[in-house]
Amino acid sequence: MNKEIWTELTFFSNCVLWGMYLLIFYDVLRIIRRVFPRGAILVGIEDIIYWTISGLLIFRMMYQQNNGIIRGFAILGMFLGMLIYHNLVSQPLVELISGFLNKIKGAILYVIHLILKPFVFLGRGTGHGLAKVFKLFKKILINIQKFLKKSRKSSKISASDKEKGG
């Protein structure tokens, strides 16, 4: 086989692999999104960052392997790699791994819930208890204020009686 044809065939094979790599890395993002859901804005930002980095890596690969020349068969090779990976592996792999990680996440959250349950119970009991104590102190302060007002009035009355009688 001619050396130039072999070089082009190797380059095409690398492009097919790069197409697969791109979708593998995107599937990692999809798995993370399924385990830790996020809003549309953050997903959009992640996609922009992903495709920017992917574009830079593709440019680097083409520059190193093909002197920066973009060829139609290179793009076709990447598309073919993406298509093969997506149709054969992507969906079952994402569902399997994200399902497994969600089960681990659920187990961890359940253990954390069990560990924190006594503290939450004590916190709620303490919170209700503190509220009752606060209400009691408030009633005591109100009664003291009423008592002080009554005693001031009675002291004013007794002082005026002394002035009249004395």
Rank of each mutant, 00 (worst) to 15 (best):
V28D: 00
L29D: 03
S90M: 03
P37C: 06
F11C: 13
F12D: 05
Q145I: 12
N143S: 11
I70Y: 12
I97N: 07
I97P: 06
M62V: 13
K162C: 09
D47Q: 07
N14E: 15
I58D: 01
L57T: 04
E8S: 11
A40S: 07
I31H: 01
L101C: 05
S160W: 11
K149N: 12
I157G: 01
M62R: 06
V28C: 02
F119M: 14
M1V: 05
L141K: 15
D47N: 14
L56Q: 06
H113Y: 13
Q91E: 14
G39I: 14
M78Q: 12
A107Y: 05
N14A: 14
K117D: 01
F11H: 11
R38T: 11
Y21S: 06
I45S: 03
F11P: 09
I32Y: 03
L9Q: 15
G127C: 03
V120M: 15
T10F: 12
S154T: 06
A107N: 10
I32V: 09
G166Q: 02
F134Q: 06
K149S: 13
S13K: 13
I45F: 05
I97R: 08
I5H: 10
F100Y: 14
K146G: 05
L101I: 03
Y63C: 03
E4M: 07
Q64W: 08
V94D: 07
R38Y: 00
L109S: 10
M20I: 13
E8M: 10
Y26I: 00
F121I: 15
M82S: 07
L96S: 10
A107R: 11
I108Y: 14
S98D: 08
V133T: 08
V16T: 05
R60M: 10
F11V: 13
G55V: 06
D47C: 06
S54T: 04
G106A: 10
R30S: 00
L56C: 10
Q64P: 01
M82G: 07
H128C: 15
E4T: 11
E163V: 14
I142T: 14
K164N: 09
D161V: 10
F100E: 12
G72L: 14
L141G: 04
G44V: 09
G129N: 02
F12E: 07
M20V: 10
W6N: 10
F59Y: 09
I49V: 14
I112G: 02
Q64N: 04
G39K: 12
G81S: 09
V89Q: 00
L93N: 03
I84V: 15
I31V: 06
V28P: 00
L88W: 08
M1E: 08
W18Q: 05
I58E: 02
G72M: 11
G68T: 12
G19S: 04
N87C: 03
Y50F: 14
I140N: 13
C15F: 03
Q64V: 14
V133M: 11
G99F: 08
L76I: 15
V43P: 00
A74H: 03
H113Q: 13
I140T: 13
L122A: 12
E4K: 04
L80Q: 01
N87P: 04
N2G: 09
L80M: 02
I49Q: 02
H128Y: 10
L9V: 15
A74I: 09
E46V: 00
L148N: 14
G77C: 04
F73L: 11
V16D: 09
I24M: 04
G166C: 11
S158W: 07
F25C: 06
Y85R: 01
I32M: 07
L109N: 13
